[in-house]
Design a binder for these strands. Sequence first.
RNA 1: GGUCGGUUCGUAUAACGGUUAGUACUCAAGAUUUUCAUUCUUGCAACAGGAGUUCGAUUCUCCUACCGACUACCA
Length: 506
Amino acid sequence: MRRTRVRFAPSPTGPLHMGGVRTALYNFLYARQKGGDFIIRIEDTDSARFVPGAEKYIIEALNWCGIKADEGVDENGNIVEIPSEKHPHAPYRQSQRRGIYRKYAEELVEKGWAYYAFDSAEELASMRSEAEGKGETFIYNYQSREKLKNSLTLPKEEVERLLESTTDWTVRFKMPQDRVVAMDDLIRGHVEVNTSTLDDKVLWKRADELPTYHLANIVDDHLMEITEVIRGEEWLPSLPLHYLLYEAFGWSETMPRFAHLPLLLKPVGNGKLSKRDGDKMGFPVFPLHWVNSAGETYHGYREDGYFPEAFVNMLAMLGWNPGTEQEIFSMQELIEQFSLDKVSKSGAKFNPDKAKWYNKEYLRAKSNEELAREYLPVLKEQGVEADFDYVCKVVGIIKERATFVSDFWTIAPYLFVAPSEYVEKDLKKFGTAENYAMALEAIKADAELEEYIRAKEWPMGKVMNCIRLGLSGSGSGLAIADIISCIGKEEAIKRMEKLADHLLCA
RNA sequence: GGUCGGUUCGUAUAACGGUUAGUACUCAAGAUUUUCAUUCUUGCAACAGGAGUUCGAUUCUCCUACCGACUACCA
């Protein structure tokens, strides 16, 4: 039995979106549950699409979520470049591993599983558009490779010469004709594909001396002794190629098992969740906010006030469930209960309302002290200096009404500063001279407020709301008793007296 | 177009041949509350369609429809 080793292998082409975070999370949960290793590897073989900062973003995002790598990333959050006991397969960045792939590509050519192709990208592009013009599709495969410029069709000397003198050739996989590849997926079960429908994928490019995803991925997974590959469904179509690659290298015995996760879909309409959706529909698609090169900012769950635990919990339930009715899970519980065979096969439409609900649940479960600590900076920003114990008390009263810590201030700023203006409509409704007289008397009285009003047989609603208006500036909100218990009776009387000025003005 | 995958209330999902098809979010109504919110109760709402297999199909098979992914010298 091999030690479980799984990896998350993002491409630093931009910020990681929530689908990617979920993939990382499932890998992490799986590794932890099996007592194995969770490895992070950066697949930056496409130099053209490289985005500065994306790698740091990815690691920081995973860190925020509590998804820590066992291998590939050091304590400082940097991708490991030099091998050590803990990180034996360094470097974990494919661009820095470029030296190792060429010989594997050549091994395949020697074995007859691949060949050198000399067609330029432009030639292929024009063949493609030409075919398209005729309503056909150009595929580089067993049908067309005999007519193209490659080591299968050119004389040996010519091949040698081109290999030496040109730099834009590639190594292509020689996809067998009419072979049925039978595959087993941990989530989807048995899948079969006929190789005649597949094409000769580029494995390695002379131009930048870099492999493409397929080669790099298989070679690295093999070298890093990966036991399970848990990745997005978009990879399912290339699974036959990957199976064949393992076969071609003679690594079938140790080939990892595969699990293809369902996609995350847009909340409304069709299609998979994309970067733009979030800002269009008012919810984040990224764990952390992101500013692109054009200076546009995208929302992030962290900056929008979500707790990482809530975000992770919500994400975990998108496409997986334990089969029980439990919905709130700590990371530890997720590790214990996660299982690939309970991952659903169909794509999940993400529901922003549910994300908020999760946050609300987590917010309520937190201690007043913890929430107060998070609230303090907000208060400071509002120019409020408040005693920690007082903030704890306030938080205890208002947290039931909040989804985010950032809601706290809006819910009851009047627990820190006296209202300077009053809601017009409530002023009209409750701020009558008659109400005010009763309210002022009641608040000044020595007796318990509610009892006093009841004893006087005054209209409870009118008097109470007039008091609320004076204390909070609005006719709706917290319980009067709660407000007074925070600001104190003296301040309450002061605020009621201040209300009088506004009544006169009106 | 081709290949592959998918399809249970609006959404996420439960059910692994026999249930009044459950739960959560959303929404609506009612109760509680001095107001709003909370809380509680109730309600609305689904097996894509058609053939089989079976004593019996949401569940198994096939077909159709629809949705999605892939179809790059991108991952």
